[in-house]
Nucleic acid binder design. Structure first.
Lengths: 358, 358
DNA sequence: ATGAAAGCGCTAACAC
DNA sequence: GTGTTAGCGCTTTCAT
């Protein structure tokens, strides 16, 4: 059985006195203030019922003793928990953690949005093959809902989770027959903008680098193919390279592709990191960027402007992303129907695929 | 008052049935299994006291209903909470969030270490000027301890927090008269290795870029100065540039420095991002890297190898960092005296400051 | 305006 | 081996 209720006087001594410091609780504050526990509770919650003078005295005492309400107990009583779980999938097979700067930026953006609204963020990783395990955070009451970063290959698992009425929002692309709420950039538009830009530079042999098993990449490829068709350029499967986001795995694949005979004068990459890998591989083969091959990245990560060459890239609305994701989740919790949301993206033109001359 | 204990039969229906789904609890499982709540509790916790057959039946039932123990209630009862708060300070003045790839890598590393040991991670940001506010997570019982990423300018606040007996570990450098437990790379060594390398390339006018108000940078500068002295090169204050980590603020400062008359042929930067900024500024001024100026970064961020030129940089032990930080924190919680820990670093040589010829 | 008491969902000592 | 019961620290109804 836990520590007995009785406690030595030293328990209420100021911080740092003893090495065995019992956590302060309302009863202590109540005793010191000469009021009841309920009064302390009300005072600390700013209840109008309590005399202003008493309220301030209690608040002052609590602050001076560094007392904070025990949120576990409060939440249990109130049946709520102001905590959202943010889940970053990782690839267990390649043992590669998802450390793409873009995903980390999204996490930062969510952290901000949650903080603004007074929520805490529980950050965890989950095997990308078992996205459904993420529901644990909800089932155990630790979090009131989930934000998942990316759909990966498991559109189906996500649909099941949504069917289970799990409060869930996913950063990713909007797919046909989707039951869950997704928030993401307009991937088709992104693919189109990048491809059109390369076409406007006179490039005709345009490669596409990214794993089309992922919904977001699949959509970007739609945009890519569409832009090519618009321009009367045939889509050539030989120019499509299925490279995953993890640099460790992608490096070899990209190098082999760039060293092969396949001729191309432009590349649309599905992340800035992939663009960087591609540029490096091209140069290693004596091809210049953007001279021989113009390269476009995706995400517009914070470092994109500081690379050499600075990356032309599809800018994703990271700053808004957090707010949108959080808003969608909280809406769902209020019982609103959570519609998927696709946000506009734009092309940020830099040196790796500069503006057309003239 | 919260929902009454009485509940309609529908409450125990399988997931996804109703839109108003009450959370399952032990009492439900107990009723369905025809046993008492304590039996369920024991069964789910794998107590040897319970009949194997009963235990499995209960476990099976719980799993099939997607039941998870309410951790809030469990923690309240057990007086523990398997949650660690990881706090990333941000610069409120410049409104710049700390998004340096290195700090994010450290967060990832901590996430792994915590997951391995069965702990959850509460990630939050705090104003770098008020690091002491981070204690809230502990005081409120949400977390059993704190991991702070970086000391920033507030060695003093950290000392106070430690004096208050807060379970706390800080990623950063070990300073004189330090009361808190720090874990970090050997910054003096890092500064020395970088500087010596530049000296070995024949460089003599070596600049140092970083804000020496930060303990880690201060230590690196010690190493820098020491290496110069060893080589009989005078330390020239004109070659020291106080640039902060935030790219937004640093960019202008670095550009001005590179555009000025000050002559230098080597630079030690205190982060890879600063190195990138420096390289860009140098090139903008018609100076080549590493030809005219050899540049060394710090951290060896994941992208360092993919930049152009790939960065020579001081490699920080990120992978170990999480494990060390977590181990130190848990040790403290077991009452062990938490000694600061300094880990070795090494230089990763790449093209921005290549190996000496021959 | 304040206090007494019940109970949030769980665990574990104590019965049997 | 299983049930009964008393709290963990808090909020809130109800009584004063």
């Amino acid at each position: 059985m836990p520590k007995s209720k009785a406690s030595p006087p030293s328990a209420i001594a100021t911080a740092g006195s003893a090495s065995e410091q019992r956590r302060l609780q309302m009863a202590d504050i109540a005793r010191l203030a000469g009021v009841s526990v309920s009064t302390v509770s009300r005072a600390l919650n700013g209840s109008e019922l309590i005399n202003v003078e008493t309220r301030q005295r209690v608040a002052e005492l609590a602050r001076s003793l560094n007392y904070s309400i025990n949120l576990g107990a409060r939440n249990l009583r109130l049946q709520e928990s102001k905590t959202v779980a943010v889940v970053v999938p990782y690839d267990a097979k390649s043992r590669q953690h998802i450390s793409d700067p873009f995903f980390l930026s999204i996490v930062g953006s969510i952290a901000d949005a949650l903080t603004d609204r007074g929520y805490d963020m529980l950050l965890s990783r989950v095997d990308a093959e078992r996205l459904d395990l993420a529901s644990h955070w909800f089932d155990s009451g630790k979090a009131i809902g989930l934000v998942l970063i990316g759909q990966w290959r498991h559109h189906d698992q996500l649909n099941e989770m949504a069917a289970r009425k799990l409060p869930l929002v996913v950063w990713g692309g909007e797919m046909p027959q989707q039951l869950y709420c997704s928030v993401g950039g307009d991937n088709v538009l992104g693919g189109t903008l990048a491809t059109r830009h390369l076409l406007s530079l006179g490039r005709r042999r345009i490669a596409f680098v990214g794993d089309a098993n992922l919904p977001e990449v699949w959509l970007r490829r739609q945009g890519y193919a569409q832009a090519l068709r618009e321009a009367g350029v045939a889509v050539d499967p030989a120019l499509e390279l299925a490279a995953p986001f993890e640099p460790g795995v992608a490096t070899g694949i990209v190098r082999k592709f760039c060293a092969a005979q396949t001729a191309f004068d432009g590349v649309v990459c599905c992340s800035d990191v992939l663009a960087l890998l591609t540029i490096q591989a091209l140069r290693a083969n004596g091809r210049s960027v953007p001279g021989d091959v113009a390269v476009i990245g995706y995400d517009d990560m914070p470092l994109a402007a500081y690379c050499d060459p600075p990356l032309t890239t599809v800018h994703q609305p990271v700053a808004q992303a957090g707010a949108e994701l959080v808003q969608a989740l909280l809406g769902q919790l209020r019982g609103e129907r959570a519609e998927p949301r696709t946000m506009p993206v734009h092309l940020t033109v830099r040196a790796s695929a500069p503006a057309a001359a003239g």
